[in-house]
């Protein structure tokens, strides 16, 4: 296991980022798969929260069950060494409308 150059803290505080679903079709098949694929690239634990319901960001079932349509506000959390990078990439997916529309 590689340790982080700065401090090597194994359990830093979770980072949080608010996102809004702006692609017309919401988090359906393709976006969900894209999100999970991206999330699994990182070692950090990823969570998504919608109205108090939290699911594992590396779970396609979890993501689909959120049924997040256009306009839904979601909270992304990431905890782990590469959390910051993960959040940056994941929230970019939302901004880019998952390359749709």
């Amino acid at each position: 296991m590689k340790s982080s150059p700065i401090g090597g803290d194994e359990h830093p505080r979770p980072l949080i980022r608010e996102v809004v679903v702006i692609n017309k079709q919401g988090i359906h098949a393709r976006p969900a798969a894209l999100f999970v694929k991206t999330a699994t690239k990182f070692r950090a634990d990823i969570g998504i929260e919608k109205e108090g319901e939290v699911v594992n960001g590396k779970s396609i079932i979890g993501l689909l069950m959120l049924a997040a349509g256009e306009g839904t506000k979601l909270t992304l959390t990431a905890q782990g060494q590469d959390a910051e990078k993960a959040l940056a990439e994941l929230s970019k997916l939302f901004e880019d409308k998952f390359s749709e529309d």
Binding site: A33, V55, N56, S59, I60, I61
Partner: peptide, 11 residues
Amino acid sequence: LLVLDDPMLME
């Protein structure tokens, strides 16, 4: 395969 590897299911 995505379903099989789904962490939520196995967790």
